[in-house]
């Protein structure tokens, strides 16, 4: 069964552009799915429609087989949203926000209190339960929105840039938490501008641009389509001159650093063999650009006819 099935979804804002154009998208149950695209591509509009925060112009949305128009109460009860912008009452304490949210899903108060305690402890917010939400730090506010979205135990969790503006330590702890709930069976859809986040967490990916899905595939299959990768190589010795390797163009970027672009046809073996022959010992290497970023730019560029 699909966790999410979207068919022919379009959105025309009354005083603006056409934000979504006949979007078809399916997300498998249990998946960790990335929805990527440049600013203004239509990601938030798509999420807004799935979560009933925006009206669609046409098309259909099904959540675990329940149509959002035909069976809204069942469909919405399976869904949890972590929005991009903070959207809680700043004067309400943390615990009240989470417990009230459970109430909106019909959870009796005694169960809501117990469940709120569980999610707030999981997200390290239990000590802040009596604090007004406006007094929380940015990272805590993000975690509060995750706790609120999880209190009714949704089967499908949608996170719209959940780690925007949080430091790397919190981001990594959020990644671990999201991995864990995904392993426990929650289907997750994630939008993010941190592409290493999507690459590290997600198994499937859709790229949206100008309101259209321009790519939708398993992450591994998509990354394997990269035509070329630019690597940054750190060398053991300082380089006196740039080595000349047949078929490769190397560029020295610092005394101990080289940059080289390798195509899929060339492969890495030939590069390292050539470097070894030239007496250069490589101590570390990294991609100059995140691979997913490279891929996304490529797809978006292709969809818009070369001009981004």
């Amino acid at each position: 069964m699909f966790a999410l099935q979207i068919q022919q979804l379009s959105k025309q804002y009354s005083n603006g552009p056409r934000a979504l154009e006949q979007v078809d998208l399916t997300v498998q149950k249990g998946d960790f799915f990335a929805l990527l695209g440049p600013n203004g591509a239509g990601k938030s509009t798509l999420i807004g429609i799935i979560c009933s925060l925006l009206n669609k112009s046409s098309g259909s949305v099904e959540i675990f087989g329940h149509d959002l128009d035909q069976a809204p109460e069942t469909a919405k009860s399976l869904l949890g949203l972590v929005p991009q912008e903070f959207n809680f009452n700043g004067f309400e304490p943390v615990l009240a926000i989470v417990v009230n949210q459970a109430g909106y899903y019909g959870m009796p108060r005694h169960r809501a209190l117990a469940r709120a305690e569980t999610v707030l402890k999981q997200l390290h917010l239990w000590d802040k339960r009596h604090t007004q939400s406006r007094d929380l730090s940015g990272g805590m506010k993000r975690r509060l929105m995750i706790a609120r979205a999880l209190v009714h135990e949704p089967h499908l969790l949608i996170l719209d840039e959940p780690t925007a503006g949080v430091d790397i330590e919190i981001r990594r702890s959020m990644w671990a938490f999201l991995r864990k709930i995904n392993q426990q069976g929650t289907t997750i859809i994630l939008t993010t501008h941190y592409l290493e986040e999507a690459e590290s967490l997600c198994r499937h990916i859709a790229i949206i641009d100008q309101g259209r899905i321009v790519e939708c595939a398993p992450m591994a299959a998509l990354l394997s389509q990269l035509a070329q990768e630019t690597l940054v190589l750190d060398t053991a010795q300082a380089l006196e001159q740039v080595p000349e390797l047949d078929g490769f163009t190397l560029q020295q970027t610092a005394s101990h650093s080289l940059e080289v672009t390798v195509s899929r046809q060339q492969g890495f073996s030939a590069l390292f063999a050539g470097l070894k022959q030239a007496g250069i010992e490589v101590v570390s290497l990294r991609n100059k650009q995140n691979r997913l970023e490279q891929l996304m730019l490529d797809r978006v560029q292709r969809a818009s006819g070369g001009a981004v």
């Binding site: 469909a75 929005p83 912008e85 959207n87 009452n89 700043g90 949210q101």
Partner: peptide, 18 residues
């Protein structure tokens, strides 16, 4: 209006409450 202004009306809109 407060719930619209601070956007916490979305807490209810996203929920299954009719």
């Amino acid at each position: 209006y407060g719930s619209k202004f601070q956007r916490y009306i979305e807490e209810m809109l996203v929920s299954p409450l009719p």
